[in-house]
């Protein structure tokens, strides 16, 4: 493979300059056109005239791939603290020893549960819950905001995409919905129906 170093020269077609230009290879942070996020410190060819990034050498593909995987699999939402309390409360009821980190797995369970069963999604009135979230959040506007940040595998991201698509909501509202379901199904009942299943999952996840 032809291996470029920062400072090396090449030629390329620059869309900004509308001409053939000389380029210099340099490290830049470059965003993705279709996915959120960027590839940081990527070796790219920069137009010597206008400074635009005009091409990416073959050697940068592994870095692009890694950055894209990271961007695609990250889930970051900001919600009023009560929603995070619901998730923490549910996680604690299921597995006190697992710690607040278990809420990542708890959310994944709920994403899978509803993504795989459209009938269940309707029966559980997730759509109705989703429609109530904006008003609830408005009522919570003076409360602190918490940031949730998880990295999930491809299948869980697919479940999230199925749900956001089916319900026409964004990821933040989806996580808020799932927090409400945790409150309804895990925290409120005296004997949550899925407690044993979820405790088994917690035991495996924390093994």
């Amino acid at each position: 493979m032809k291996f470029y170093h920062a400072g090396d020269k090449s030629k390329a077609a620059c869309e900004q300059c509308k001409s053939l230009v000389t380029t210099t290879f340099a490290y830049r942070d470059v965003p993705f056109r279709h996915a959120k996020g960027q590839a940081k410190d990527l070796l790219v060819a920069v137009c010597d005239e206008c400074g635009d990034v005009v091409s990416i050498p073959a050697q940068s593909t592994p870095a692009v791939r890694e950055a894209r995987n990271h961007a695609l699999h990250s889930v970051e939402v900001k919600l009023p603290v009560p929603y995070v309390d619901m998730l923490n409360g549910g996680a604690y009821r299921i597995a006190p020893e697992a710690g607040p980190g278990f809420k990542k797995s708890l959310l994944a369970y709920y994403f899978r549960k509803y993504a795989q069963a459209p009938d269940l999604l309707e029966e559980a009135q997730i759509g109705q819950i989703a429609s109530e979230i904006p008003l609830q959040r408005k009522a919570m506007k003076d409360l602190p905001i918490a940031r949730l940040s998880f990295r999930y595998s491809g299948p869980v991201i697919s479940d999230i995409d199925v749900l956001t698509d089916r319900l026409s909501i964004n990821r933040t509202t989806l996580v808020a919905c799932m927090a409400r379901k945790v409150e309804q199904e895990i925290i409120e009942p005296e004997q949550p129906a899925e407690l044993t299943t979820l405790r088994n999952i917690a035991a495996v996840v924390n093994a």
Partner: peptide, 26 residues
């Protein structure tokens, strides 16, 4: 075969170019 190629970019990575993202190999 020789790795003597680049991917066009306009200040962004076209992630639909599957060769540039490594989703397909040379």
């Amino acid at each position: 075969q020789k790795g003597e190629f680049q991917h066009e970019a306009r200040n962004e990575i076209d992630d639909k170019n599957l060769l540039s993202t490594g989703e397909i190999s040379t």
